[in-house]
Design a protein around this nucleic acid. Structure first.
Lengths: 221, 221
DNA sequence: GTGTTAGTTAACGACTGTTAGCTTAAGCCG
DNA sequence: CGGCTTAAGCTAACAGTCGTTAACTAACAC
């Protein structure tokens, strides 16, 4: 599977650091296609990147450090995806909906990566280079986007939240539960329309939603 | 740490199967105290149970099979806990609340086990004895309890669910998101009162809750 | 004693993260 | 052009772990 010996041309003099990105990309690729985080070992990443295992140590102090980089890149990608969704509309309710759906889509399209990012496995084993501090506040950007979108809905009276801060967290937790369950069991669709039902309930949206009802509900209005 | 050589007395003639439970118990103990699922290896379980590694093969065909047993026992314990909570009251709303809180407590008191049970890691690697079928419908008992409690709330008019089946799943997913996040980051309390807020929103409870408000909200009603 | 059950020891092949030390080639300078 | 330096990456090897198999031993029941 990984026996493609493409004889990687080595980097130019000043650009050795370029390999760092290739290593992370290899780890991400490995993670995405193996649905088992344990498949992402230092050596398998090296094989995938077409380099020798010890070459990794020039760019990462540890094996957990590779995972941390993967997680960081995952969060960055998520945040960027959500931002794009938020920028697609100015209308508060469709916007909140777009952000939420983008979140769920992100998780559905990269189940393993989602699980790894939010799964917290990959031990910070005390002797590892990854400290507990490296993990703090990793999802804050994404949560902030969600909170802002929800606040806008409250501002125009589309949401009856009396505590938007708490409800933004609650909304995220709900999305996370749904996304994680789908990422774990793969093909757990849930009842049809569950996505929008949860979003509407947690965001306390007053009006009924029919903005591109992906998983069409049964409301024959 | 596991060097306690208590010189396990071996089982009597017909009771060899008793070791099976000890193995599962050892795996559970190991899981609970190590916050890393990968620490539960066939050999570490054997060490913990005070037996030689190959002795496990008399009771489990595989290493994944041990994990499956752990997961099964976890679900059984969860279901039993929820059932006890459900039996504590007859009043629908406090009952639903009790079940939900019991769920969250279960997860909070056994974060690693919760993560393992619902985390879906521990690969069913095609050549393993654990088939995809062994995993299907594992949490159905717990979900059923939740659905029944919610349905009772709907019946007495305390919940405005128009689709109790979907909303039971939604409620569970919300609880799962909250429970999982706490299990992952360990000491993510969330905003105060978030538990009851989520429950109330997802269960579409009409009346405000102040039944033993554990994480007292700020409502100065 | 004899057979069976409950367990053992020894060993295999494969994999892991990590270290030490070597090779290759790019780029500068004369 | 040729030589030197140094960055980029390699090979070999370590100590340890893993899951699993084969073959052996010890105790109980008859």
């Amino acid at each position: 599977m990984e026996t493609t010996k493409t004889a990687r041309t080595r980097n130019r003099r000043g650009e050795g650091g370029r390999l760092r990105d290739e290593i992370v990309a290899a780890a991400v690729a490995l993670l995405d296609e193996s649905d088992d985080e344990r498949a992402v070992t230092l050596r398998s990443v090296a094989r995938r990147a077409g380099i020798a295992a010890p070459s990794i140590y020039a760019h990462f102090p540890d094996q957990p450090a590779i995972m941390l980089a993967v997680v960081r890149s995952g969060f960055a990608e998520l945040e960027q995806t959500l931002r794009a969704a938020a920028d697609s509309t100015a209308d508060p309710v469709p916007r909140l909906l777009a952000v939420c759906r983008a979140y769920l889509d992100f998780a559905r399209e990269r189940p393993q990566r989602y699980r790894t990012i939010f799964g917290g496995l990959w031990k910070p084993a005390a002797d590892a280079s990854v400290t507990d501090d490296d993990l703090r506040g990793l999802g804050d950007g994404a949560l902030g986007l969600l909170a802002a979108a929800l606040a806008d809905c409250v501002a125009v009276g589309a949401s009856t939240c009396d505590d938007p801060g708490s409800d933004a967290v609650a909304l995220w937790l709900g999305l996370h539960g749904l996304a994680h369950q789908r990422a774990v069991t793969r093909a757990f669709p849930g009842p049809p329309g569950i996505d929008d039902r949860m979003i509407a309930a947690l965001a306390r949206l007053a009006t009924v939603i029919h903005v591109a009802p992906r998983n069409a509900g049964s409301s024959s209005d």
